[in-house]
Design a protein around this nucleic acid. Structure first.
Length: 756
DNA sequence: TGGCTGTACTG
DNA sequence: CAGTAC
DNA sequence: GCCA
């Protein structure tokens, strides 16, 4: 604790030093309470900062990247974003309405329906709290992917760095759909701005996409003229303010929105503007604080949402609770299993042959009993989802056979796209939820068409259920359409395919204006070696590897290794071991009976790998262990042309075959996993996956006070505060896959049955 | 409201 | 340490 | 996003 705050102080001092060059006059204004004096003095950089000339801007263009990233990582002093408070009775009860997508008509700004959330009021004096609840400083919305309903995860930077403090931004277009706008909105909030997701009189700046002209701005706002005290600038303005950590002069030419210039020139001379700029900003803030939301946002208590909330049907409750529970697995195990494992098992036990007689009845009863008649009324959540025969526990079947004609395939496809989209948004947990829901649907043999049906399934809640219904009915989802063709999102998805590029890097590149791989190659000087490889072989790495090819690639490595020492054993893991028809990469699990990891590592890294490179089989190293504990080598390989012919011949479609001929021996991602024989069971589990199975098993282990990792199953693991592992614990089992399943109380599944 | 697997390599 | 990958 |  103490040392942390010390560290924080140190970090902050570093920041101060950094700040020095841009911060000329630090005029303390507000009273911000408890922060150290030092901090107070710098708090007010924002509105008072000196302008930075365009020239200066250019001259220091060299550092933006670093500046930005350092700034954003300086969160030691930031406070967690305050739980957004709904301001009115009506919004308070409008649960489920608070997702950005559900209630945002992009047009028709209706102040009264505006969602209002507090971002930074922690730091501001609240005005007349009792009397005028709506006279709070403007409180902005949060872009999706960054809010977790109430508690948000946006981290506002230290107060001293809030370049946009007290400002309220309205974006044109004002949605967070496109990737770079979403990024800009998030950045703006991070640096102290509030985001008005609908027009509002508290807005101080209109931030216009760089390719949008003034006319569109007016159309969007449905105005003939933007209010005088509102600044209209290109998006570049906001980014550059962050680069300079200062409010720049918005009247500079480069920030002019096309079509707006004339008006500006007409009203004021450039010089005047420059001189009065910072003051005028101040004034605006003052104004907006004085007479903010009151009129516009004054809501009138009850809304339909609150009505739909209180009265809930008790009649529907019990329907699904009864019914036969035909588990093919032991009851004992079931009792112990948490819901995730239950679903894992559910999957194992899923019916392929539909007992259509029973299931529809049950669901129908559930949904129809009350009103589909009117509107709202969220379908009642039943417990025992998994016990519901409708969820599919009846007889066991193996997954896989039915995959191709899954009645919900269309829905699954679209949900998959959405998952990918959210992944690109950095919205990890939502992505995981989508994936779990997809996993559920995959093993549902009954076609799901209504939200009420969907919500009964495990890992499908109200919101996903609604989406599923929409997809089932319309065969598409509106939100997805919007994002799918957006150039920035297309680019984002492309960038994310590059090995070594994740969401952070990709979003940064997008935000910097890069839109193609070529852009990256020509104008990003500091690409890592891996990223260059990733770009050069993007297509190869992104394409699936036919099973036959995986087999051959594996055989080559096995042969080479056993030529060195016949005692070595190689297992092809990953989706190949699960029986997949094609794979994304090749996982080779390498071991040797009664042999320590050290020896295995030596042989593989010092003999096998160099030899395979010499042969031209291996083509690149992407990551290679060098530590004593290291156990892996990641890289790329290539099937010799001579062996590729039969694979090409075997390709199904002519089109694919032609493609393969054009690019005869693509690079493939290959991972060598070095495992001491004593740990082979745990390693097999891990490297066979799939990831959902791994996670469920690990979660289950943890719930039982154990720990499962690629090295073994341990018990008596000591965990301190915050789940920090204090002691390894005692090994329960690591050599034998089956025994690990057993020790966890999970029924054995063959690798083929782990394709969850 | 707080979790959501657990570990290793890179720069 | 953050970002990335598995 | 879902769940306890």
């Amino acid at each position: 604790m103490g040392s942390d705050s010390l560290k924080d102080k140190k970090k902050f001092q570093d920041l101060l030093i950094e700040l020095d060059d841009t911060d000329d006059e630090a005029t303390p204004t507000g009273n911000h309470g408890s922060l150290p004096v030092m901090i107070k003095e710098l708090e007010t950089i924002s509105p008072d900062v000196p302008e930075v000339s365009a020239q200066e801007r250019i001259s220091s263009m060299k550092r933006p990247l670093h500046a930005l990233s350092r700034v954003s990582s300086a969160k030691s002093l930031t406070r967690p974003y305050a739980a957004p408070e709904k301001m009115t009775a009506s919004t308070t009860s409008a649960k489920g309405q608070d997702s950005p997508e559900s209630s945002r008509p992009d047009t028709a700004p209706k102040a009264s329906s505006m969602r209002i959330r507090s971002v930074q009021d922690l730091h501001r004096p609240t005005k007349v709290p009792g009397e005028m609840p709506f006279a709070l400083p403007f409180q902005g919305a949060i872009p999706r992917g960054l809010n977790k309903r109430k508690r948000a995860s946006i981290k506002v930077v230290a107060e001293a760095r809030r370049v946009f403090k007290d400002l309220v931004f309205f974006f044109v277009p004002n949605s967070d759909i496109s990737a770079d706008r979403r990024f800009r909105i998030a950045k703006a909030i991070e640096y102290g701005a509030a985001w008005a997701n609908e027009w509002h009189q508290a807005v101080t700046h209109i931030i216009v996409d760089n390719d949008v002209n003034y006319e569109v701005v007016l159309q969007t706002l449905k105005m003939t003229e933007v209010p005088k005290n509102v600044v209209v600038v290109k998006a570049t303005y906001a980014s550059e303010c962050l680069v300079f950590r200062a409010l720049l002069n918005p009247k500079q030419h480069i920030y002019n929105v096309p079509g707006h210039e004339d008006q500006m020139n007409a009203s004021l001379s450039t010089k005047e503007i420059t001189e009065t700029d910072s003051r005028s900003l101040q004034l605006k803030n003052a104004i907006s604080k004085e007479m903010p939301v009151a009129e516009a946002a004054k809501p009138h208590s009850t809304s339909q949402a609150s009505e739909s909330f209180g009265s809930n049907n008790s009649s529907i409750q019990q329907i699904a609770a009864s019914g036969p529970k035909c588990f093919s697995v032991s009851k004992r195990a079931l009792d112990e299993l948490d819901n995730i494992i239950m679903s894992v098992k559910a999957i194992n036990d899923l019916p392929l042959d539909p007992d259509e007689d029973q299931t529809p009845q049950i669901t129908e009863e559930g949904t129809s009993s009350e009103n589909e008649s009117a509107d709202e009324r969220p379908p009642i959540r039943r417990k025992l989802k998994l016990d519901n025969p409708a969820a599919g526990f009846q007889c066991l079947q193996k997954p896989g056979d039915d995959v191709l004609n899954n009645p919900n395939q269309k829905v699954i496809d679209i949900l998959q796209q959405m998952a990918t989209y959210y992944d690109s948004t950095n919205d990890t947990w939502r992505t995981i939820s989508y994936r779990k829901a997809i996993a559920t649907l995959r093993r549902t043999n009954r076609r799901i068409t209504t939200s009420a049906e969907a919500i009964q399934l495990p890992f499908i809640g109200q919101r996903l259920a609604d989406k599923i219904e929409e997809i089932a009915v319309t065969h598409r989802l509106r939100r997805l359409e919007a994002t799918r063709h957006d150039p920035t999102d297309v680019a984002l998805r492309t960038f994310l395919q590059i090995y070594g590029v994740g969401t952070q890097q990709a979003m940064l590149w997008i935000q910097q204006g890069h839109r193609s791989l070529q852009d990256l190659l020509t104008s990003v000087p500091n690409l890592t070696a891996n990223q260059r490889i990733g770009i050069a072989h993007l297509e190869d790495f992104a394409s699936r590897i036919p099973r036959a090819e995986v087999t051959r690639l594996g055989a080559i490595v096995t042969k080479a290794l056993q030529d060195i020492d016949a005692a070595f054993q190689v297992t092809i893991g990953g989706s190949y071991r699960r029986g997949a028809a094609d794979s994304g990469d090749i996982d080779l699990i390498i071991t040797r009976p009664d042999t320590e990891i050290g020896h295995i590592r030596t042989v593989v890294l010092e003999t096998l790998v160099p030899r395979l490179f010499l042969r031209g089989f291996l083509t690149a190293t992407l990551a290679s262990t060098n530590r004593r504990t290291g156990t892996k080598w990641h890289g790329a390989c290539q099937l010799p042309l001579s062996r590729y012919a039969p694979i090409i011949t075997a390709i199904d479609t002519a089109e694919e075959r032609a493609k393969a001929l054009r690019n005869p021996n693509p690079w493939r991602r290959i991972d060598l996993l070095l495992v001491p024989s004593s740990e082979i069971g745990a390693a097999m589990i891990y490297f066979t996956g799939n990831d959902i199975l791994n996670r469920s098993m690990r979660l289950l282990a943890r719930k039982k006070g154990m720990c499962l990792n690629q090295r073994g199953l341990f018990k008596n693991v000591l965990r301190g505060a915050g789940q920090v592992k204090l002691a390894e614990g005692n090994l329960v089992e690591s050599k034998d896959e089956r025994k690990i399943f057993e020790a966890l109380g999970v029924p054995w599944r063959t690798p083929e049955e782990r394709q969850i």
